[in-house]
């Protein structure tokens, strides 16, 4: 008899643990500060996290497929700059946004094409594009930020929809969409299969090039959406925007329980991890802990999470499934 419930629990265990840690943090911060448990503050956390969530969603697909994309921060900056230049040249807001998203998608698709067709390590290819996209953003702007956009554009960063704002709703919408696509669509199945066993997928007659390119294209587009939010929020297209955002995205994805080896991805985990990191940053500010310590602490949490996940996956293979695996290949 297969322990189905145990398996189910095992699958969502990392996410459950994250929620638990989050609850502990919320309780602790509520007690420690009267400002923490207020709607204004939570609105702040959600608002801040929405950028990370959107960028990390695309990254979840890439990491599930066994790859990584280091270029997302630079792509966010590049697409923000593209939107700004388009608007300056007199194009409408909608068109400009589409141009920015297309720029992000183009960089992503190029990433994916090179990785897939030339079979080069994604780490190296996207490292190249990190520099390339950043360089392009600097060249286009001449290093000088572009600012002053129409209200219809800045609405995407600082508008209001009832008690919420566009980035939050965009993040929520994207998260639902990403969960549906990753867990229920063919594209999602193949993304996970790419990370699990690329060769098996190829031998089933699936075009792995096409799906790999699509995975990176998706990540490029979410990076561009991140660029939209950053640019609209600051009302400035800054060629150095999104600095180190790739690291934050990767950290959130890994913390959320997506395997860095590929073959396993959790949108819910990514979402929870982004919120957890958001609450952590917020809490450290509220408790007036200097920013330098925030970096230190976040680094420590990510390392702990990764070590924990690794130890757990090894134990899992050696323990519960040993009996069933003993005769396996």
């Amino acid at each position: 008899m297969f322990p189905k419930i145990k398996l189910l629990l095992g699958n969502i265990f990392p996410q459950l643990l994250l929620i638990l840690v989050m609850l502990v943090m919320v309780i602790f911060l509520s007690v420690a500060s009267p400002f923490f448990l207020t709607w204004d503050n939570f609105r702040n956390v959600f608002d801040h996290s929405s950028l990370y969530i959107i960028m990390a969603l695309g990254m979840t697909f890439v990491i599930s497929s066994g790859g990584v994309d280091l270029s997302v921060g630079a792509v966010a900056a590049l697409s923000g700059v593209c939107m700004a230049v388009a608007m300056q040249s007199g194009l409408g807001v909608g068109t400009s946004i589409l141009i920015g998203l297309a720029a992000g998608g183009l960089v992503g698709a190029t990433n994916g094409s090179i990785i897939s067709l030339f079979k080069i390590n994604p780490f190296i290819v996207t490292l190249g594009f990190m520099s390339l996209a950043r360089g392009l953003a600097l060249i286009i702007t001449g290093g000088i930020p572009i600012y002053g956009f129409p209200r219809a554009f800045t609405w995407w960063g600082s508008g209001h929809i009832g008690p919420l704002n566009p980035p939050m709703l965009l993040a929520a919408f994207m998260a639902v969409l990403a969960a549906l696509v990753l867990n229920m669509s063919r594209f999602g199945y193949y993304t996970v299969a790419l990370g699990g066993n690329e060769e098996a997928l190829r031998r089933s007659g699936v075009s792995i090039h096409l799906y790999k390119i699509m995975v990176y294209l998706l990540c490029g587009v979410t990076a561009a959406l991140g660029g939209l939010i950053v640019t609209a929020r600051l009302n400035t297209a800054e060629p150095l925007a999104g600095w180190m955002l790739e690291m934050d995205s990767i950290a959130a994805v890994v913390l959320g329980g997506t395997s860095m080896k590929g073959g396993r991805g959790s949108i819910a985990g990514t979402l929870i991890a982004c919120l957890l990191l958001g609450i952590l940053r917020n809490g450290l500010v509220i408790l007036s802990i200097p920013a330098y310590y925030q970096q230190l602490l976040i680094g420590m949490i990510i390392l702990t999470a990764v070590i924990f996940a690794e130890v757990r996956s090894r134990k899992g293979l050696a323990g519960t499934h040993k009996k069933e695996r003993s005769t396996a290949v």
Binding site: Y189, V192, A193, G195, G196, N197, E199, A200, L201, R203, S204, G205, V206, G263, R264, V329
Partner: peptide, 17 residues
Amino acid sequence: DLALVDCLDVASNIFLG
């Protein structure tokens, strides 16, 4: 060895592609 995607379930593997 190369036939199956370990992380997917039995049905998904049977229908892969």
